[in-house]
Deep mutational scan, measured.
Amino acid sequence: MDSLVVLVLCLSCLLLLSLWRQSSGRGKLPPGPTPLPVIGNILQIGIKDISKSLTNLSKVYGPVFTLYFGLKPIVVLHGYEAVKEALIDLGEEFSGRGIFPLAERANRGFGIVFSNGKKWKEIRRFSLMTLRNFGMGKRSIEDRVQEEARCLVEELRKTKASPCDPTFILGCAPCNVICSIIFHKRFDYKDQQFLNLMEKLNENIKILSSPWIQICNNFSPIIDYFPGTHNKLLKNVAFMKSYILEKVKEHQESMDMNNPQDFIDCFLMKMEKEKHNQPSEFTIESLENTAVDLFGAGTETTSTTLRYALLLLLKHPEVTAKVQEEIERVIGRNRSPCMQDRSHMPYTDAVVHEVQRYIDLLPTSLPHAVTCDIKFRNYLIPKGTTILISLTSVLHDNKEFPNPEMFDPHHFLDEGGNFKKSKYFMPFSAGKRICVGEALAGMELFLFLTSILQNFNLKSLVDPKNLDTTPVVNGFASVPPFYQLCFIPV
Rank of each mutant, 00 (worst) to 15 (best):
D2L: 14
V6K: 02
L9K: 01
L11V: 12
L15S: 07
W20H: 04
R21Y: 10
G25D: 15
G27M: 13
K28A: 15
L29C: 04
L29I: 04
P33H: 00
P35G: 08
I45E: 01
G46L: 03
S51W: 08
S51V: 08
V60L: 08
V60A: 11
G62L: 00
F65R: 00
T66C: 04
Y68T: 04
G70A: 08
G70M: 05
G70N: 06
K72P: 00
V75R: 00
V76D: 00
L77N: 00
H78P: 02
E81T: 07
V83M: 06
A86K: 00
D89C: 08
G91N: 12
E92M: 09
E92H: 08
E93W: 11
E93R: 04
F94M: 08
G96R: 06
G98V: 07
I99F: 14
I99D: 09
F100G: 11
A103Y: 09
R108P: 11
G111M: 05
G111S: 08
N116T: 12
N116L: 03
N116G: 06
G117R: 08
K118E: 13
K119G: 13
K121D: 08
E122R: 12
R124M: 03
R124A: 04
R124K: 15
R125I: 06
L128A: 14
T130P: 05
T130D: 06
N133I: 09
M136C: 14
G137C: 12
D143V: 10
D143E: 11
D143C: 14
E148G: 00
R150K: 09
V153H: 00
V153T: 06
E154T: 09
K158W: 03
T159R: 05
T159N: 05
T159K: 07
K160L: 07
P163L: 06
D165R: 00
T167V: 02
I169Y: 09
I169L: 13
I169G: 01
L170D: 02
G171R: 14
C172R: 04
N176D: 02
V177W: 00
V177H: 00
V177Q: 01
I178G: 01
I181V: 11
I181M: 09
I182M: 15
F183G: 04
H184L: 04
K185D: 08
F187H: 07
Y189Q: 03
Y189N: 03
K190L: 07
F194M: 14
F194E: 00
M198L: 12
E199L: 12
K200C: 10
L201G: 05
E203G: 09
I207Y: 08
P211F: 08
W212S: 03
W212E: 04
I213G: 12
C216S: 03
N218C: 13
F219P: 03
S220E: 13
S220W: 15
S220P: 08
I222R: 07
I222T: 06
I223A: 13
I223L: 14
F226G: 04
G228N: 05
L233R: 03
K235A: 09
F239P: 02
M240A: 04
Y243C: 08
I244P: 00
E246L: 07
E250G: 06
H251Y: 03
M255L: 12
M255P: 14
M255C: 13
D256A: 14
N258L: 12
N258E: 11
N259Q: 12
D262I: 01
I264R: 04
I264L: 10
M269F: 09
E274L: 08
H276C: 12
H276V: 08
Q278R: 15
P279L: 14
F282V: 05
F282G: 03
E285L: 06
S286D: 14
F295E: 01
G296D: 12
G296K: 09
G298L: 06
E300A: 14
T301S: 14
S303R: 06
T305W: 05
T305C: 03
L306K: 00
L306C: 02
L306G: 00
Y308K: 02
L311G: 01
L313E: 00
K315I: 04
V319T: 07
V319P: 03
K322L: 14
Q324K: 11
E326I: 03
E326S: 01
E328K: 11
V330W: 09
G332M: 02
N334M: 13
R342M: 14
M345S: 01
P346I: 03
P346A: 07
V352D: 00
H353P: 00
H353V: 03
E354G: 01
V355N: 01
I359E: 03
D360H: 07
T364F: 14
H368A: 05
H368W: 06
T371R: 07
R377L: 02
N378K: 07
N378Y: 03
Y379P: 00
L380I: 15
L380M: 08
L380D: 15
T385P: 00
I387G: 00
L388C: 08
I389T: 10
I389K: 01
S390V: 08
T392K: 10
D397M: 05
F401Q: 03
D408P: 00
P409N: 00
F412M: 03
G416T: 14
G417M: 10
G417H: 07
K420V: 08
K421Y: 11
K421S: 11
S422H: 07
S422T: 11
K423H: 12
Y424T: 09
Y424A: 08
F425V: 03
M426Q: 06
M426L: 10
F428K: 04
F428V: 04
S429I: 05
S429T: 05
G431E: 05
G431M: 07
R433Y: 10
I434T: 12
C435H: 05
V436G: 06
A439V: 09
L440Q: 02
L440I: 05
L440K: 01
G442T: 05
G442W: 03
G442S: 15
E444V: 03
L447S: 05
L447I: 15
L447M: 14
L447D: 02
L447H: 07
L447N: 03
F448P: 00
L449V: 12
L453G: 01
L453T: 03
Q454P: 00
P464F: 09
N466S: 12
L467H: 04
D468L: 12
T470E: 07
P471L: 04
V472R: 15
G475R: 09
G475M: 07
S478V: 15
P481E: 02
L485A: 10
F487K: 01
F487T: 00
